[in-house]
Nucleic acid binder design. Structure first.
Lengths: 113, 113
DNA sequence: TGAATATATGAACGCATAGTCATATATTAA
DNA sequence: TTAATATATGACTATGCGTTCATATATTCA
């Protein structure tokens, strides 16, 4: 190898990439993704399943929406959210895979409620 | 579908998973990973390539070390760091892939220096 | 119309953290 | 030993962010 000046990514690419991981780097957002993995849900059902306030969930959905990880359709006054991209699930699954191989914290018992 | 009580991951699993993405969610750490992707480097070479202080780089290497994304060997007073896990690169590559498919910010010109 | 429901959002608070600075440890050279 | 080099780390500061609270908007029901 030559110097230390090898295949470093551009600063802005690294920043953009960091943004993607940043969105996945929150417990609440990951739990939302795990719920939406099987289909759409409205905000109130998400809030109930997560045992969190509607406001907190809505704020996180906004983050996921802006980063285009989720989309939503509106039916009357109800907003149904769903995953917008397969890459999200790929990252999610790969992350879980990493968890299983490195730690022993990846349990198998769900805790919805 | 039944209620909103579907396949949600455990809270602590989500927390652990969030930790993994959290480590990848920093520009400096991603640039370090991109540099180590081709082989080991010492701290001073990393600092030079990143154009950052030795202290800042060392702090981030500590984070990467604690999360077991990098390992190091010591040769005299020089510490050579390298990636510790293939999952890291998989996540890194998958993230880059996601970038290319969703935005146009993923350039191809490196910016080392 | 007015009340209730579903969602969105701005402000504020508290906490986590990336980088700086100073310094400690360890190794090599003189 | 002393000086210089390579790295690690604790304290501090500034910034970012997740949640709460209050409130705004929109829709449905009476």
């Amino acid at each position: 190898m030559k110097r230390a000046r090898r295949s470093i990514i551009r600063r802005d690419t690294a920043t953009d990439l960091a943004s993607i991981f940043q969105v996945m780097a929150d417990t609440t957002r990951l739990r939302i993704i795990s719920l939406l993995a099987e289909g759409e849900l409205c905000v109130c059902d998400l809030a109930a399943a997560l045992d969190m306030t509607q406001s907190a969930v809505s704020h996180q959905l906004r983050v996921l929406r802006i980063m285009q990880l989720v989309k939503f359709r509106k039916e009357g006054r109800i907003a149904y959210y769903s995953l917008d991209d397969d890459h999200v699930l790929e990252l999610y699954v790969l992350g879980l895979d990493h968890l299983k191989h490195t730690s022993s914290a990846a349990g198998d018992e769900p805790d919805a409620g």
